[in-house]
Nucleic acid binder design. Structure first.
Length: 825
RNA sequence: GCGAGAGUGGCGGAACUGGUAGACGCGCUGGAUUUAGGAUCCAGUGAUGAUUCAUCGUGGGGGUUCGAGUCCCCCCUCUCGCACCA
């Protein structure tokens, strides 16, 4: 039974129950004729409950899903929980509760809130990362990568967060601080870790960015992160040694200007090259650099520091010996950890040379102009002081010098990426154990696939990094095992894998979540993947989204899947702020969706969030504005109720009176202006949804409602269309209106209305009339009227005539259906 | 510093390839109705001037054009990403 007045709670409870009972949101994955996979970034189920940022993201994705469903697709819109990881673990530690107890509670609360928001989620395919049925396959993936040489173990300087008590990846380091702990300096530690060879795919990850249909902002962030540069490796001879000092440079054209070399303090040759006289100083410098906090070391404002090694290298282009220094402005991780310094043409080198009075030799002269004073000239120009290359354009020499040196065997072209391999190991408890066994005799042995999952034991003391070692190391029943190869004593890898691995493949699991014998079902995967539409926050542009792409490429090469890009479309939503400022716990201005749903209902909250601003740019949540959406829904509901009850009353008499003085539109044929508004709105809302212009789509719905309320009469097509157009935004109310219209079952069974192109244009248009480019009035003429007609109409206009009085018309500019401009003097 | 984007009423924000700036909503003003209401309905709402008229108005300054929020140049501010990556 339809509900008379707009009572959000009653309506929303009613339809949520209906959806659940009738499984309206579940998709027949195998039988689907026209699959469309909508994905939203699954949340970490925090104890605080669903964040309004999640609601914002999910609603934007849900609109796509509902719209595609109304367009006739079989839409799959799954949800799950990313409940492993440091986030959950730290919280569990803080409140002194075991995560295995904590997580189910949080998840239950999240499910409740997600249902409350009326998302079209198919809960029958939920995944939960800490579920052994899930992480069994996370471990299996690790084994696949290992098998194909993409997982390796290495001792490398890693980022250690003293608060997390674990290593974190490069991507999780922000300005030398831990992403999770602002203000906490990341330390550098040498540790043996598992890495995934993401760098192997650097070029493909970069190349595919040219064609994948993703938000530009996200693709740009990825390009930046991959950081491809082209240059050359050049060997500088070391007098009296066999070895050469190899540097990487993007500017081989400036080789003649190299007046010194700089090694990173950690460079392996430092110890060998340092002279006796300099040894003490160099040692002290290295010690100081080692202790230096990461954020300070990378502060560009800081004065350059460094120490002379007491050794020389020979510049291969002119055989000149140049001094070798060490300085912390050279990074051991990048290139070869050593540079040739060209102070005339590199700002950093210039600063360093100025600091230590090293020679500065310009080798490129800017074309048509003088080189800048007091700084390096980094542009191109004409070669000078460069022996045989003098007079050539510097750009030509980029390749030429490399080529010539390559012929002598002392240089080679080289492409360098900023992207690093993905450090997978975490010295923590709350994650999937890395499925590897360390045997004294056999070395590193993978756990046989049939032994998966390696279950995470439920241990009481899961604190990280206590004196007894890592949590899983302390727990002997887990740690001590036997070697699968030789049967001898062995121990398990005591690390767990990075939380980002859990979320790097979850979309592959959703359709196949019922299969316990394979990670993903081949047929379902072929049918449903790649994901048609992925919507999420851009904060994951270089983390999650890079890792998923890497995994897909690896899987494709292994023959496990048939595509290499996981998401056909990805759209990044903007940031939601509140009252002009950032929303955060510290500001105490975080929006709790429950409160707003309590007060106004989920449809109002959903719609308001989408109305705030352009979805891809974010919006400013102001409490004062939400009432506008609420009023809209109330007016809408009232209109339907009044028109439809009136019609029911009129129906027996068949002939509905053309409402005498009654404000309620009658039932009958639409007048033409109303019909035009309707058809224009049908077109606009569809187009706007496809381009994520939700705010303007909602504005169009409001305009349509205003028009319908003022119309003399309405018909079924108008009311049905508006209900369907509303359905992506306010799904509960749309269902209620649909029922009021006499339909049985969900509005999702309806089809998106077709607009009639002929009815999207008026037959009369208003033409702006300008005199000398200034607006002086307007005239109404028939659509597509000729210039002559418009001109005559305009000249007949008295205010136009006034402005043209005494003037001669020199020129007339006519833009059909828009304006006419008289140029006169 | 580099890269990307953005500056429009009191506020959030509209404006397709240059063509009537300010859609839609909030707020505000006036009116109607109601015992009352953070209710509903109607009208108005960029600024200035005396009205139905005019002038000025899209961060600032120049320019192109019959016509510029939109295109070009310079500057200012803000947001985001990267940041001693050689």
């Amino acid at each position: 039974m339809p509900i008379k007045s707009y009572d959000a709670h009653q309506i929303e409870a009613k339809w949520q129950q209906y959806w659940q009972v009738h499984r309206v949101h579940e998709t027949d994955l195998r039988g689907a004729a026209d699959p469309y996979y909508v994905l939203m970034m699954f949340p970490y189920p925090s104890a605080e409950g669903l964040h309004v940022g999640n609601v914002y993201a999910f609603t934007g994705a849900d609109i796509q899903g509902r719209y595609q469903r109304l367009r006739g697709h079989d839409v799959f819109e799954p949800m799950g929980f990313d409940a492993f990881g440091i986030h959950s673990e730290n919280f569990a530690l803080r409140i002194n509760t075991h995560p295995m107890k904590l997580i189910p509670r949080n998840v239950e609360n999240f499910r409740r809130q997600l249902r409350m928001m009326g998302l079209m989620l198919d809960w029958s395919h939920e995944v939960l990362t800490p579920d052994p049925d899930y992480y069994k396959w996370t471990q299996w993936i690790f084994l696949q990568l290992y098998k194909h040489g993409l997982a390796y173990r290495a001792t490398a300087p890693v980022n250690w967060c003293p608060k997390c008590h674990t290593v974190i990846s490069n991507e999780q380091v922000v300005d030398g601080e831990c992403e999770r702990h602002p203000g906490t300096e990341v330390e550098r530690r040498e540790m043996e870790q598992w890495f995934f060879r993401t760098t192997k795919y650097a070029q493909r990850l970069l190349d595919n960015l040219d064609w994948i249909d993703w938000s530009d902002i996200t693709r740009n962030a990825q390009r930046n992160w991959i950081g491809r540069s082209e240059g050359a490796e050049v060997d500088f001879r070391l007098p009296g040694r066999d070895a050469a000092l190899r540097v990487y440079t993007t500017r081989p054209d400036t080789l003649y200007g190299a007046t010194y070399m700089v090694l990173a303090p950690e460079h392996p040759l430092v110890g060998e090259l340092v002279s006796e006289e300099q040894r003490a100083q160099v040692g002290a410098y290295i010690e100081r650099a080692r202790k230096m906090r990461a954020a300070d070391r990378t502060d560009e404002e800081r004065e350059k520091t460094g120490v002379y090694l007491g050794a020389e290298a020979i510049n291969p282009v002119n055989d000149q010996p140049i001094p070798i220094w060490i300085s912390d402005y050279v990074l051991i991780e990048y290139g070869t950890g050593a540079i040739m310094a060209v102070p005339a043409h590199d700002q950093r080198d210039y600063q360093f040379a100025s600091q230590f009075d090293l020679p500065i030799i310009p080798v490129i002269r800017p074309t048509g102009g003088d080189p800048p004073e007091g700084e390096a000239y980094v542009g191109e120009g004409v070669m000078i002081n460069s022996g045989p290359y003098d007079g050539l354009p510097s750009q030509d020499c980029l390749r030429k010098i490399t080529h010539d040196l390559a012929a002598q065997g002392v240089a080679q072209p080289r492409v360098q990426y900023r992207l690093r391999d993905w450090c997978i190991s975490r010295q923590r408890y709350w994650g999937p154990p890395i499925p590897m066994i360390h045997c004294e005799k056999c070395g590193i042995v993978p756990v046989p696939a049939e032994d998966l999952p390696v279950r995470l034991p439920e241990i009481e003391d899961f604190r990280p990094d206590t004196p007894g070692g890592k949590p899983l190391e302390r727990y002997k029943p887990f740690y001590e095992t036997t070697c699968p190869t030789c049967g001898g004593p062995a121990h398990r890898d005591a690390d767990v894998s990075d939380n980002f691995l859990d979320s790097a493949w979850y979309f592959l699991r959703y359709p196949s979540s019922h299969r316990d014998d394979v990670a993903w079902d081949a047929e379902l995967t072929r049918k449903w993947l790649p994901v048609d539409m992925y919507v999420g926050g851009n904060e994951h542009a270089v983390l999650h989204l890079m890792y998923t792409r890497f995994l897909c490429m690896a899987f494709k090469d292994m023959g496990l899947i048939e595509f290499e890009e996981p998401f056909k479309k990805f759209r990044a939503h903007g940031l939601l702020i509140r009252e002009g400022g950032k929303m955060s716990k510290t500001h105490g201005n975080v929006i709790n969706p429950d409160e707003y749903v309590d007060e106004h209902g989920a449809d109002t909250l959903r719609m308001y969030l989408m109305f705030l601003g352009p979805y891809t740019e974010g919006g400013d949540f102001r409490d004062s504005g939400i009432i506008g959406i609420r009023r809209f829904l109330e007016r809408l509901h009232r209109l339907y109720w009044e028109v439809l009850t009136k019609r029911a009353a009129d129906a027996p008499g068949a002939e509905p009176a053309a409402s005498g003085g009654d404000a309620v539109p009658a039932w009958g044929a639409l007048d033409r202006p109303t019909a035009i508004k309707l058809h224009q709105t049908i077109r606009k809302v569809g187009e706007d949804i496809e381009s994520f212009g939700y705010n303007t789509a909602i504005a169009a719905l409001m305009e349509l409602l205003n028009t319908l309320r003022a119309a003399p009469a309405l018909d079924a097509f108008a009311l049905e269309s508006l209900a369907i157009l509303l359905a992506p935004f306010a799904p509960h109310e749309a269902e209620e209106l649909w029922e009021m219209l006499g339909h049985e079952g969900s509005i999702l069974a309806a089809r998106w209305p077709q607009y009639d192109p002929a009815l999207t244009v008026t037959e009369e248009v208003e033409i702006a009339v300008q005199v000398m480019g200034r607006l002086r009035g307007s005239v109404h003429v028939a659509r597509d009227a000729s210039e002559q007609v418009v001109r005559d109409a305009a000249l007949a206009h008295e205010s136009i005539a006034k402005h043209l009085a005494g003037k001669q018309i020199r020129r007339v500019i006519h833009v059909p259906n828009r304006l006419i401009n008289f140029v006169a003097n």
